[in-house]
Write a protein that binds this DNA or RNA. Structure first.
Lengths: 132, 132, 132, 132
DNA sequence: GTGGTCTAGACCACG
DNA sequence: GTGGTCTAGACCACT
């Protein structure tokens, strides 16, 4: 299986952090479901052009968090009993269109991805502070 | 002037990267205008509780990019002739409400800020790849 | 490989500037070629008796200029595709003897190195202004 | 009198060092002779676009070295009895043509001024080390 | 008091 | 082991 991970080596964000967050996100979006077989460490490392040590660390950390389950000699699976800290998979059907819409509006104004993200992050924090 | 920078020391993103991007964003949003006097290195360092070396490096890098102008013994200014790579200041009046709207929808679905950002980043790249 | 850098801590010229210029010069002289592996930050710092932060900054700035390529965990390399601003490597075989000759003449007249440099710099600018 | 000083504010070399060396050089070249009247601090500061404090410091340091002589209310003069550490004015008539020749050769090879200076400085030190 | 350089040393991400 | 970030603090050049 080909995992749709978007890793940016230039962003300054640690590669393992990027991978871990995106895998969690795939699960929340329902694109990875409990029981699914994950790609092997080496496969993923090669396809993302990342050192396999780094991938292995991500898998290990996610297992430690209860998100993944390693079965020696068999493979790595998405855990059946997700810990509550991961949040339940969200119904994003009604949400993702809004995202796509905003992205379209941003591109129309020649905003870059980083700029949009910064804008949202800053506004989020401003709103959070306002709400206490 | 008090610069509204939102720095998150826990995010894993290098502090200088966060600062640099946010300063660029403030300029694009029109909150910082060419010729404006920036806070001093030390002032900003104190108010953000960041080492002054880190702030100085940000200022230095932004000067090297043509975004800021450093005058020794005088102060630091937003450059008058912004390089084209920075993009022109954008009219965000019609855009920011859409952002606020999306943030509200995300919070309603109990998405965290990081998750929303991840979601947008991934969708952005998926869309970019689709459009070629 | 031992890099033949001549750093003068007493000259008043910032160490990073000296290093950066000399590395660029080594490339133009052909003593460093595209793809060459540079000494590690720490090695160079020790051999020049300079703080490793200073060396790292030089490497970082040169990478930013497209002269070097830094690979985390691997090493630092001379960039393959040098930016045009660096100029092409020059054939100095026919030139360096002239330099040595002038240096000999200068020493014969008891000129110091600094004086010779000043003399050349001033004359260069006078000639430049004359030629328009 | 218009002093032909070539000051480069971007070179990283302290302005006072540049000025002091060039004034000393003008004396050695015979373009400034013992007893000559120097421009006033303010005049020189304005014409070079440098803070007058910096110029004043140069004059003060050069007086302290015995190179200049300050007469209050009258002006600043090149000292009549130059200290031996300054070296005697050199006959550069036979030398300057060699310099001009080398500069021409350098320009022909598209070397920049900085590169030529670096080249000479490095070669000078290499030769010094060779000679012991 | 401005920005700038440099040092010393700790810790991190990556291979 | 690689390069990279960050801190703390000293000292310098300039206005």
């Amino acid at each position: 299986m080909e995992l749709p991970l978007q890793i940016d080596k230039q962003s300054g964000v640690p590669l393992n952090v990027q991978m871990e967050q995106q895998i969690r996100l795939l699960i929340r979006r329902g694109l990875l479901k409990p029981g699914d077989l994950m790609p092997t460490v080496r496969t993923l490392a090669v396809s993302l052009e990342i050192n396999s040590n780094t991938v292995a660390r991500v898998y290990r950390d996610l297992q430690h968090s209860g998100v993944l389950l390693l079965k020696r000699g068999i493979g790595t699976f998405v855990a059946e009993n997700m810990p509550p800290s991961c949040g339940k998979p969200v119904d994003l059907e009604s949400f993702e269109p809004k995202v796509a819409e905003l992205i379209a509006a941003a591109r129309q104004r020649h905003l870059s991805c980083v700029e949009l993200l910064q804008l949202i992050e800053v506004r989020w924090k401003e709103i959070s502070n306002a709400h206490g």
